[in-house]
Design a protein around this nucleic acid. Structure first.
Lengths: 152, 152
DNA sequence: AGGCTGACTTTGGGTTTACAAAGCCATCGT
DNA sequence: ACGATGGCTTTGTAAACCCAAAGTCAGCCT
C-alpha cells in the first residue's frame, strides 16, 4: 500500500517515473552494454559482472518495459539463439548514459580517463541542453510548462 | 567483501560510478527539489514525500559527496537555520535530470504533460549530444578514447 | 550416445533502501 | 515560563537489490 501510494504521488513527475524505471545499477550496466553492441546473454553477464539471475531478471524487465527487444536468430549451422537489441526508447536513453559518464569523468576523476570523441572529426563530445532556436539556456532560463495532452 | 570487489570492478566505468552515486529515487528527488530552489529540511520532506529519516540520511550523503552544501543562516529576528544549496557538481547534474524527465515525457506519457521551454525565447528545450565542431553524431560515430591523466 | 555449451532458473543469504511512527532538543514567540 | 516549531534521530519492519553456487534443459558436435 505504501508503495502504491508512493507510486501514485510520484506519477506526475516524469523525472521520478524515469528514475524508477532505470535508476538501478544493473539496468544501467545492461543498457550500457547494449549500446556497445552486446546482444547475447552470456556476454551481458561477463561484461557487466552481474550475476546470471540478476541479468536474467533485468533483461526480462527491460524487454517488458520496451527498452530492449528479444528475438531469436540463428547463424548457419548453429542452434537458435536470442539477441537483445535496444528499441528506440532504449536508444534515446544512450545520450543520458553518456552524460552521466561525462559528469563522472569531470567530478569523480580517476587516474585514466575516458573521453568521448566524434569518430569522424576527432572533436570531443559533450552533452548539452539546448532550445530549438539554438540557444544554450542557463538553468535560470529553463521554464517548466504544464499542459493538457490532447485526447487522441 | 562482495561489495568491495564489486566497487573496484566497476571503478573504471564513469557511468557506473555516477549511477552508484545518484541512481536512487530519493537522491534524484532531493536534487530535483534543490534545483527548484528548495533549501530547507522540512520543505524537502514535504515536497519529495520522502520520510524524514531518508531525507536526513540522503541530504547528509549528498553533502558528504559534495553535491550540496549545508550552511547555517539566520533571517533577522529568526533562529538559526540550515540551508542546503547545490554545489557546482550538483548543478552540473541538473541537465541530466532534465534529460531524464524529457525522456519520461516522451516514452512514458501521462495525461497532462510537462514541457521544458527556454523562458527567453519560448522554444522547447531538449538535450543533445554534440561534438565541439558542432556536429550531432549518431551513436555509431561516438568513439570512446582511453588516456592517462597527466599527473598534476 | 554422450558431452559440451548457451541460456537460463533456483535456492539461500546479505545489504541497502524505504516506510511509519514516535521521540528529542534547542530556540523563538508570547 | 511554556508551548510550538524546525530539524532532526531512533526503532522496527518490509521490500528491493545483489551475490554465490548449483541445477536444468535443449540442441549441436563428435
Amino acid at each position: 500500500m505504501a508503495r502504491a501510494e508512493r507510486t501514485e504521488a510520484g506519477d506526475a513527475c516524469p523525472i521520478e517515473r524515469s528514475i524508477s524505471l532505470i535508476g538501478r545499477r544493473s539496468t544501467v550496466l545492461l543498457l550500457r552494454e547494449a549500446s556497445y553492441g552486446t546482444s547475447r546473454f552470456d556476454d551481458f553477464v561477463r561484461r557487466t559482472g552481474l550475476t546470471e539471475s540478476v541479468t536474467a531478471d533485468q533483461l526480462r524487465r527491460l524487454v517488458a518495459e520496451g527498452l530492449l527487444t528479444k528475438h531469436p536468430y540463428r547463424e548457419p549451422a548453429q542452434r537458435q539463439r536470442f539477441e537483445y537489441v535496444l528499441t528506440e526508447a532504449g536508444h534515446d536513453l544512450v545520450p543520458i548514459l553518456l552524460a552521466l559518464g561525462s559528469w563522472g569523468e569531470k567530478h569523480r576523476p580517476r587516474s585514466h580517463r575516458i573521453r568521448l570523441v566524434h569518430a569522424d572529426c576527432g572533436a570531443p563530445i559533450h552533452v548539452e541542453v539546448r532550445c530549438e532556436a539554438g540557444h544554450a539556456p542557463p538553468e535560470s532560463e529553463v521554464a517548466v510548462v504544464l499542459e493538457d495532452r490532447p485526447a487522441t
